[in-house]
Amino acid sequence: MSSTNNQDFLPRSQKWLQISGWLLPFLYVLIVAALYGAFLYAPRERVMGEVQRIFYFHLGSAWNCFLAFFAVALAGVLYLVTRNEFWDHVAAASAEIGIVFATIVLATGSIWARPIWNTWWPWGDPRVTTMLVLWLIYVAYLILRSSLPDGEKKFKLCAVFGIIGFLDVPIVWMSIRWWRTIHPVVIASSGGGLAPKMVHALMIAVPAFTVLYLTALLLRTAMHLHQGVARELNQAVLERGRP
């Protein structure tokens, strides 16, 4: 039953690959523009200095990390409603890309925090710590995926975990914010007044990363689908090959 399902999507997956191919030139242009914006167009930050130029790619990744994890939860709901394996491919692809972005956010955040706040890991900052918990949740999601054989059960369990993980995010955020306000605050949150040119640079970096996310999502979903089809066909041949 599920095999027909996967193979029905094959013609459509060609379309996605085509679209991701069309997106590539835009992606190149946008990334170059974002680099230009971050390094040349945006002014030097007065207090933090040159290091602040990490910020544009940092925020671009952060925004897409949330987008990716929202897509995991949404695809989970859609899977549970429609029971269509396609949505599991989307969730798997999105979780993986989300972890890539989250890793970038954590690493750049840490490198940024060291010279500015003189600490590699500002535990008291709710953004950093929430991102870390997010990262842990979605790595757990991938571990759950890899420890189950393909099949309806895996798709159901992963959908449930994806939904619960996403629902947890606002609660984690709240709890860490309260934790921080109670403990002595080492880190005053920066932000607030960004120069207009910095906002412009941000307005290029964020869409650039969003296009990157979409391209990767289309590509990875198609790959998951093709893998599923190859797996099913192999199995079918093996089964019918037996005398």
């Binding site: 918990v133 949740i137 757990a140 571990i143 709890s175």
Partner: peptide, 26 residues
């Protein structure tokens, strides 16, 4: 969820602890 999985003993805390971070903190 993990009751049918071979590695359930490790898998359960891996799944559970990140989700209950707010409970632990509180």
């Amino acid at each position: 969820m993990v009751s049918g999985i071979r590695t359930r003993e490790v898998l359960l805390p891996i799944l559970l602890f990140p989700i209950i971070v707010p409970t632990i903190l509180a």
